[in-house]
Nucleic acid binder design. Structure first.
Lengths: 190, 190
DNA sequence: TGCCTACTTGGCACCGAGTGACAGGTAGGC
DNA sequence: GCCTACCTGTCACTCGGTGCCAAGTAGGCA
């Protein structure tokens, strides 16, 4: 019966996230130390690292889980659908669970864009997205080198998502993120 | 007359690079400490950080300089050339100065691919590439939102270069890197 | 020749992220 | 009521990176 513990663990994890993000927005990401976060939450510094591998992970959240959700949504698409349509639809389908935190805080998205160490970690996790999505996309490539082409399509789509996210953050949340994404993709496909 | 000093400085910088890369290949990047590098070169740990801002920079080399070279080559292309052709040609033109280290060591490229902290730094520098190239590419975009479209094209092209580089490294240096790049780009433009 | 100045270097102390090891406490099973 | 996990805090340590200061060295100038 690990459920009780798991619940406790999830709750504490949530509390760390909430407290840390508040501090980050107040003082800036780099200026906030793990000690301060731990103290604010009321746990030891060591325990913080038992819940989050790095300070960056608190901001980035469950990116790998969202990659898996997107992968499931992509796999659920008809096999004869072209990669671009399939990826776009899959992202929209899994958006409710995928973009929760994007909606939750504009400041966080801006911070991810402006803080080098966060950007770096984000790209590191993006690597995982590519690894998960590329084989699924490869099944939808009918001509040429499927692996190379799939990798290119996935990388391009993720880049377009990034661009859309950046424009959205820069607009203060007013820009239509899907429209910007479509515009970015249009640039690639004439 | 700073030339004498500059020469000295450049020579030492080269020596640090050479020594460090040898150690990296021998022991692995993470397992090699800055102290070991400094001691092997015969300088203090503090001086090392006066020549390289981070340990990663020793491996990555002058990526920003290469970005500037590529930007110059791109600007030299005819104004009416489409972005894809212009970028491809510009990369080939600046390749001799751009890909010196790629040719120099397959092990280094592999290390960049397999070491998380190096990958992260590389993407960080890639950000600079985007910032430099996007405005130049935007001038070649005739329809739609030029900024967004230029950002998308640049990001896609850089992603394709990455893919080609990865395939090249994985093949042990036998793959035709330009052919892989063309294949990747073909995936985006049908 | 001798001084002055600018620049470099090394050493020291320090900070912050992240890790391993150990001891103590607490909840659940028997 | 004990035993067994598991979680937690504490301590010590490594390593990357930075600020500061004193010492040294090369070149310019009188």
């Amino acid at each position: 019966m690990a459920t009780a513990w798991d619940r406790q663990r999830a709750a504490l994890r949530e509390e760390i996230t909430e407290t840390a993000r508040t501090l980050f927005v107040e003082k800036g990401f780099d200026a906030t130390t793990v000690d301060e976060i731990a103290q604010a939450v009321g746990i030891s510094r060591r325990s913080f690292f038992r819940y989050f591998g790095t300070k960056e992970d608190v901001v980035l959240g469950d990116l790998t889980g969202r990659a898996d959700a997107l992968a499931r949504a992509l796999a659920a698409r008809p096999a004869d659908e072209d990669p671009w349509t399939a990826l776009r639809t899959a992202m929209l389908d899994s958006r409710s669970e995928t973009f929760t935190d994007v909606r939750s805080d504009l400041a966080i998205t801006r911070m991810m864009r402006d803080t080098p160490s966060l950007r770096a970690r984000k790209f590191e996790k993006r690597q995982y997205w590519s690894e998960v999505l590329t084989p699924l996309v490869a099944e939808r490539i009918t001509e040429g080198d499927a692996t190379v082409r799939a990798a290119a399509v996935v990388a391009a789509v993720l880049a377009c998502v990034d661009i859309a996210s950046d424009v959205w953050a820069e607009s203060g949340g007013t820009a239509d993120i899907v429209a910007v994404y479509d515009e970015a993709v249009a640039a690639l496909r004439d």
